[in-house]
Design a binder for these strands. Structure first.
Lengths: 158, 158
DNA sequence: TATTGTTATACTCTATAACTATA
DNA sequence: TATAGTTATAGAGTATAACAATA
């Protein structure tokens, strides 16, 4: 009896009780985010974009001339953290900065014309990878999940 | 017309098009995780536990004697990263390490008796904070969301 | 006064290679 | 050979305070 209890307690194969954590949206969403982002770098290896870098270039592509500040608000990134990311992306030709025509403080962000097709390619890769890593869910479940997540972090979904 | 276009492009109040990102579970789950974890440190300020530290002590409480390796597998933490976390938690009396009775390589983790009530308190705080940060969702939506997230990262839910 | 972009800084989290003691 | 714990190290990601230039 004692030996058996010890085996139950310490064997690596033993089922670990994680019921409390699994009742927390914070834990589950962190685990899900890790799972989805794990393969991202591999999938994006040829293009060399990190998840955050990808989110920047795709938003800039769909919002040409967006300012650093607006981008920070949109992606919930602290403005100081954006500085290095933008500098690095600009050095790698993913971004171009142009002075704002009316506001001398602001700088508009753009995708250099030759890189636009690369950004589109990155968007395809990101989408395919996202789909591949969530293939255990039906299309309906994925839509539901996206809507619930957006509702959770403040994007009011219809 | 030109001036109007410029305003649409660069004004900070302009609605930013993020439709592509919002179709990605990776993006939405990262945003949701950030939203939920943002308040965690504040809520846990008195006890001084980070989200990862909390996940460790609660799993140890519900699985006394669990090894570092099993904990790493359970929480998807790399074993080397657990070393410093466990050492720090042990110094702060949140954990106790005891040699495994049969396997001289392994070390079992336990909550020191005087700290058990603190861990329970931390669990209450974590749960309340999680609920507070997801109050825009109904109970039913929260259950659905938890199940979909678990299914996504590999915890097969019924 | 408020906002944009920025510097400096620190802390948390995650990842990989390689070692040792033991199984 | 494989596993448990560990060391060392690096790189992302996130956070805050404070500054100059401009609005």
């Amino acid at each position: 009896m004692v030996a058996r209890l010890s085996t139950r307690e310490l064997s690596p194969e033993r089922v670990v009780d994680t019921r409390l954590l699994e009742g927390l949206l914070g834990y589950n969403s962190r685990r899900a985010a890790l799972h989805l982002i794990a393969g991202f770098s591999d999938a994006m290896a040829d293009l060399g974009l990190s998840p955050v870098e990808f989110s920047i270039v795709t938003v800039v592509r769909h919002n040409p001339g967006i300012t650093s500040r607006s981008l920070a608000r949109t992606l919930a990134i602290q403005p100081p953290n954006l500085v290095g990311l933008i500098r690095s992306l600009e050095q790698r030709q993913w971004l171009k900065r142009k002075p704002h025509p009316n506001d001398k403080r602001a700088i508009g962000l753009h995708i250099p014309t030759p890189s636009v097709s690369l950004v589109k390619q990155a968007e395809s890769i990101a989408y395919e990878d996202d789909q591949a890593r969530s293939k255990h869910l039906t299309s309906d479940e994925k839509v539901k999940l996206n809507n619930l997540l957006m509702k959770l972090y403040g994007k009011v979904s219809a």
